[in-house]
């Protein structure tokens, strides 16, 4: 399956539970149409990871996720030889090996004989596939999500470059494997570290910022249908006012959703400054932030029209 056009992309993604802006839809559509990876950047919690999930769901492709972290290396991302399994097999087949070695008259001959059997030990049987090998091996198109790529080390990034240009990998003992179908690739980054130019060159760049009021309204309505429209409006106005402060961590979409959910659970249907004060801990995760907002509650409630 593919998206027909930008409009269709929007609709399909919405069906998969993701509301996207015009620019998100455009970039996603083009990336898939031209088989380019997308590098998604933006503040925490604006739905970067969710976007990849929604795309995989909308297109009915399998989602293969590689979560990056410091110290992630090729072995953990691509494949690992099952060293223990190989040893175990050797142990079990000791007798068989002696049989093979029986004909050898000296050490170097024995080594040659063993070398002839190498293929048996370095075969796919002893490979443990990790996400990237999985992507290359699956027969259908898959969605590859390389999450928080900024957390990975520069060497790993260099390795990704190679993968993203050719979609093929080389396992020295077995040979080169090429992807059957080019996967749809999303890389997400929180800008913890700047990615290299080379990586950026290979990707389309998508910057997701905090959504505007309209978009956020739609998101809340989609995710929490039972909540009153007027309440959502007030809630979002308040959130936007709060975001305009210089906070340590600005509340993101998931916090808006949590807040809305909390109000539903508490059966609160009217957002007053008092309610905001009492439920503030849902959206502000730092004490200093909470204090700052409490100090400015009057201004916020006035601007948000509470």
């Amino acid at each position: 399956m593919m998206f027909q056009n930008i409009e269709d992309t929007k609709i399909q993604l919405e069906k998969a539970g993701y509301i996207c802006s015009e620019s998100i839809a455009t970039v996603v559509f083009l990336a898939i149409a031209t088989q380019k990876p997308v590098l998604v950047e933006g503040p925490a919690g604006v739905g970067k990871t969710q976007l990849a999930k929604a795309v995989s769901q909308a297109l009915g492709h399998k989602l293969i996720r590689l979560q990056c972290y410091e110290g992630l290396d090729e072995a953990k991302a691509l494949y690992e030889w099952e060293y223990a399994k190989q040893l175990l097999y050797t142990q079990i087949m000791k007798d068989k090996l002696s049989e093979i070695l029986a004909g050898a008259s000296n050490l170097s001959e024995a080594v040659d004989l063993i070398a002839n059997q190498e293929d048996a030990f370095f075969s796919e049987r002893f490979i443990q596939p990790r996400p990237l090998l999985e992507v290359i091996s699956t027969k259908d198109t898959s969605v590859l999500l390389i999450d928080e790529v900024d957390k990975s080390d520069p060497e790993f990034e260099a390795f990704l470059l190679e993968l993203l240009s050719d979609f093929q990998i080389t396992i020295p003992e077995i040979g080169t494997k090429k992807a059957v179908k080019i996967p749809i690739v999303f890389l997400t980054s929180n800008n913890y570290r700047d990615m290299s130019d080379a990586l950026k060159r290979r990707c389309l760049h998508l910057f997701i910022d905090y959504p505007d009021r309209e978009l956020e309204f739609e998101i809340v309505r989609l995710k929490i249908p039972q909540i009153e429209k007027t309440l959502i409006k007030k809630l979002i106005n308040t959130i936007h006012e709060i975001r305009s402060f210089d906070l340590k961590k600005k509340p993101c979409i998931s916090e808006t959703l949590d807040w809305a959910q909390a109000l539903v659970v508490l059966q609160i249907s009217e957002l007053s400054p008092d309610v905001v004060r009492k439920t503030l801990n849902v959206i502000c995760k730092y004490k200093t932030d909470t204090d700052l907002i409490l100090d400015n509650m009057d201004v916020i409630s006035k601007k948000a029209g509470l």
Partner: peptide
């Protein structure tokens, strides 16, 4: 958007 996605990374 297309220009931005390609030129401003």
């Amino acid at each position: 958007t297309v220009l931005r996605a390609n030129f401003v990374k």
